[in-house]
Design a protein around this nucleic acid. Sequence first.
RNA 1: GGAUCGUUAGCUCAGCGGUAGAGCACUGCAUUCACAUUGCAGGGGUCGUAGGUUCAAAUCCUACACGAUCCACCA
Length: 732
Amino acid sequence: MDKVYKHQDVEKKWYELWEKRGYFTPKVEPKKKPFCIIMPPPNANGSLHIGHAMFLTIEDIMIRYHRMLGDSTLWLPGADHAGILTQVVFERKLEKEEGKTRYDLGRDEFFRRCMEFTLSNKKIMENQMRAIGASCDWNRTSFTLDPKFNKPINMTFKKLYADGLLYRAKRMINWCPRCSTALSDLEVIYKEQKDPLYYIRYGPFVLATVRPETKFGDTAVAVHPKDKRYQRWIDKEFEFETLIGKAKMKVIGDDAVDPKFGTGVVKVTPAHDPVDFEMGQRHGLETKRVIDFDGKLNDKCGKYKNLNVYKARKIVAEDMQIQGLLEKVDENYTHSVAICERCKTIIEPMVSLQWFVKAKPLAEKAIRAVKNEEIKIIPKRFIKNYLIWMENIRDWCISRQLWWGHRLPVWFCGTKNLSELQLTMNPSLPKSNGCGEIVVSVNPPNSCPKCQNKNLIQDPDTLDTWFSSGQWPFTTLDFGQSNSKLTDFNYFYPTSVMETGYEILFFWVARMVMLGIYMTGKIPFEVVYLHGLVRDAFGEKMSKSKGNVIDPLNIIERYGADSLRMALIFGTSTGRDVKLGESKIEAMRNFGNKLWNIGRFIKINIDKFKEQNIKIREFNTKSDRKKLSAENKKILSQLGMLTQGVTREIENYNFAASAERLYKFIWHTFADKYIESVKEKLRQNDDETLSVTIYTYSSCLKLLHPFMPFITEEINFSLTRRDKPLISSHWS
RNA sequence: GGAUCGUUAGCUCAGCGGUAGAGCACUGCAUUCACAUUGCAGGGGUCGUAGGUUCAAAUCCUACACGAUCCACCA
């Protein structure tokens, strides 16, 4: 053994050997118990970051442990096309490198280029996963936008549609003017910001608003029904002066109005505000669109037409000031605005014709599965989060006006039933007459089933990326692809553990539970294990702009993957954010060094015994145990406790606790105490002691292998020269 | 507004009913010995605050303070 452990050479060597010999690929053996983790597919729009290293480590620990237990163990890797995010990332790249927009390329070319970009990222990412030591089955690697997934995804779409759980409707949606797409409620985040609050005059009323530019779309004024100041006005109409002439408006009474806010009077703009939309529905108000999908005022706004909302806001306020319609302005008003999660543009709420999943019926089963503990969530405190979200679930808008994603399996007979939005956004669509029939079909239909027209137009919209990834646990296992009895799906589904970050509990986990149960009749996984965010040493979120990003590959180069893996789980607590600084990684590298040197010490002794032709007895725990010296008995009993402890902690998903036990035992019990106390005996060629030392050490290597696979494998090989790698050895 | 989590040694965190623990940092000593990516020894905490339950409380309960996160339609 070399004096110094050289992870650079060792890690690559072992990974190649493991992969080449097929240890990552399980045999489907009906008699054997399966253990299966479907990897959360990383977004293929960049390289791996430390958060990926985190889940890869945790999952690899479970996978290696179960493989060593003898379970038929499948870890299925993949990559996510990550619809909107990738489109945004690629558009930025296009802008930066070529000065082009997606419109310059056109839809087909944009899609092709984006696919090229994504697939090349995927390849890079896969090699990065290898560098971390992820022992996943590359034969089954999947990509969410692989055409082979069209069929199962379309099947789901069709079934939902047939069951009345998927509908097309004109609803209030979150519109991102930059991405030019509708977003689900989850894809919107809120940001505190200071905006002027304008007190504007509406005939007899003064009311407060941050959006005076939407006044052209107002179709009522609302007050609280019990507000004594205004009660007499309810249901009455009033006439008043606006910037573009006289107008008439009705006063409504609605509980949604907070009498304590502003003057207690609000303008109601059903077309451009979610609360107002609901009020409009309750009171039968007209929904008057005044902002177009490009974020500009339309021709209902008179001379303000074509101004974008922010410019319009300023000008409208100024003009109102001039006309004496502006009472006062509160410049210190703070509120939160909705922004696009991915590109941070302020959301424009719009009424639009989109596809929605009726979520409640799906949620009911998803709630039951968790309540009756068919699905366990670890740590437990997330159960409440999950249940509260599920119980208050709202319909899910799944259509996107993006180019990067699965197309909706919807065909229109002629352009008649395409939405106005779709027609404007897709000017190249063939103008054709048809009966307007809407066909939902798994495969492209040849002709309209109603009028036999052959010119069907596929819905230009794409699916929310989470709609397809929400089916990942069964689509990757070839659900519905084969009639054979021994498919991956039949064997590995429901999968064992879904390990992922708590931040996508709703986005992903919740959807997988709903769609998994809906399509397969079974839960998609038995356990949900949620890990926390990796933060920097000071608890700050890592970000490129802050410059505090720890690049896992850089760390692996300098300290080795084992050190990084150990640092990511040592001293952590399930589901809590992890603070990671370089000193921790260094400490784990030192531990590896300690482990290495124990190995060297033992090897030196083995060699010495061999030189002197002293036979090292093969140690048999059962029969020889009683005859051993006191200290040998003691270390073996401590080892027994360690084995039990480590096993129990892994079974309980306390990976940190098991790693800490191993660290403590190997360094402070075995090296510092036992080996130090036994040195003299080894000098005197005591073969019993050497044999116990080897046995104890080998057992430690095995227990440590899931955590630090490379160094343990290398030492094990150097010590035994046997062609039986740890990856395939038996746990205990 | 609702919910959740956290507050324990200088730092990061474990412990979650029975005489305060780990890693890092710190101090002193050691070093041709497998390892200075080391060893030995040591300093350092009335476990956020105030009440309560208990023979016994970091540990259970109740308030409060501070910090963080999530959810919600703050015009």
